[in-house]
Design a binder for these strands. Structure first.
Lengths: 210, 210
DNA sequence: CTGTGTGAAACATTTCACAGCC
DNA sequence: GGCTGTGAAATGTTTCACACAG
């Protein structure tokens, strides 16, 4: 009964969600896999197959109803609700993440901030008051925190991660450029622009000037 | 003669580079694929196979010399030099990227900043003076810019990207949550924490409380 | 006639397992 | 004995091509 959806498919769903959101803003009523493929630079067949893992959302001869598919994808990804997050590390990077306006409107709200430095405790950043890391466990329970964000220097990253894991957090967004170790029931996603840059330089390197 | 290295392998090389950098800081002289696998949560066989596409860097019975392998990987990825980047968009996000201390020490230097808003032109952010977008082509040539960073609002992203492409840029780091269109000889990498969060909520969703 | 949904074929990637070297 | 490098097997993913619905 485990239909076993490939992980690569899950990685692409947010891309579909993003483009459909843009299409809805453009008031597109219907879209074909052809058109989605052109916009996302991928084959129509792949899009159809990906979506078919979750149901039959299209109409033959017509395509997909944008609003309907958007709703389905939101449901599938679980983004038809608000998720609460806590951030650890309120240095420059942490402040920038708190200040980044794209999270809350997309359903991801940072409701608590922590720092190891006791000097920071009690200060306010945006809407949240910086707390001592010792209070994490309580706050996770009281405020219903689902996701942790790690924005501390590399040397403190594993400690912060262990702390989140110890509090029962099962999903972590990690900005520290380290190779963290987590139990296998905990998801961790790396955000490191340098990794992305390095894959590009690999290709740039072998590029003669035209 | 095209040995054709799988793209997934290229995506993993920066992870190897990152862990080896940490290992060198810990003064590890030698490391086995076993140990790398444990640290990166992947199989030793995969690491050995990945590296074997580029040469024989290990010693049987011993493992890989950390410093040597680090040097090889830097060479392969093309990060044994400094890369020059230009950023477009100097709002909150753009300022945060300019302020992010992890780029320069890892060989990626932002040497120019641009904004569409003429009000911004001439102001200084960190070490760079904000220029008008019209000057992009000249600056790309004069300052030897290899990579563009897009940090404008979604509605202006495609315009910024077209501008970079028009100036001959072949690699773009895109922070705007859009589905950009670029010619196929241009690499573009998305940086969007929301995409990462959404793949995690997919898995969180189907997680009963224990 | 257009465009979806989908088995089956083609292709890509990972894992296995072992020869060979330190 | 321990560990790499690597063909070959196993597994996973994408593309094809077509029946069928609007």
């Amino acid at each position: 009964m485990t239909s076993q959806i490939p992980e690569v498919v899950i990685l692409r769903l947010p891309l579909y969600l993003r483009i459909l959101t843009l299409l809805e803003e453009e008031n597109a009523g219907v879209v074909s896999s052809q058109e989605l493929g052109a916009r996302l630079q991928m084959t129509p067949a792949q899009i159809r197959k990906d979506l078919s893992y979750f149901g039959k959302f299209g109409k033959q001869g017509k395509g997909y109803n944008v609003r309907l598919l958007l709703g389905e994808l939101r449901q599938i990804l679980g983004v038809n609700r608000e998720w609460h997050m806590a951030i650890i590390g309120v240095g420059r990077l942490g402040k920038a993440i708190l200040d980044y306006g794209m999270l809350t409107p997309r359903g991801f709200k940072i409701v608590a901030a922590f720092d190891i430095d006791p000097q920071q405790t009690g200060k306010k950043v945006g809407r949240v008051v910086i707390q001592d890391l010792a209070e994490l466990a309580n706050t996770v329970k009281n405020r219903g925190i689902d996701i942790g964000i790690v924005a501390v220097p590399p040397s403190q990253a594993q400690q912060a991660i262990d702390c989140l894991v110890g509090c029962g957090i099962k999903a972590i967004l990690n900005y520290a450029p380290v190779a963290p170790r987590v139990p296998k029931d905990v998801r961790i996603q790396e955000v490191d622009p340098v990794l992305a840059l390095q894959t590009m330089t690999y290709h740039l390197k072998s590029l003669g000037s035209p």
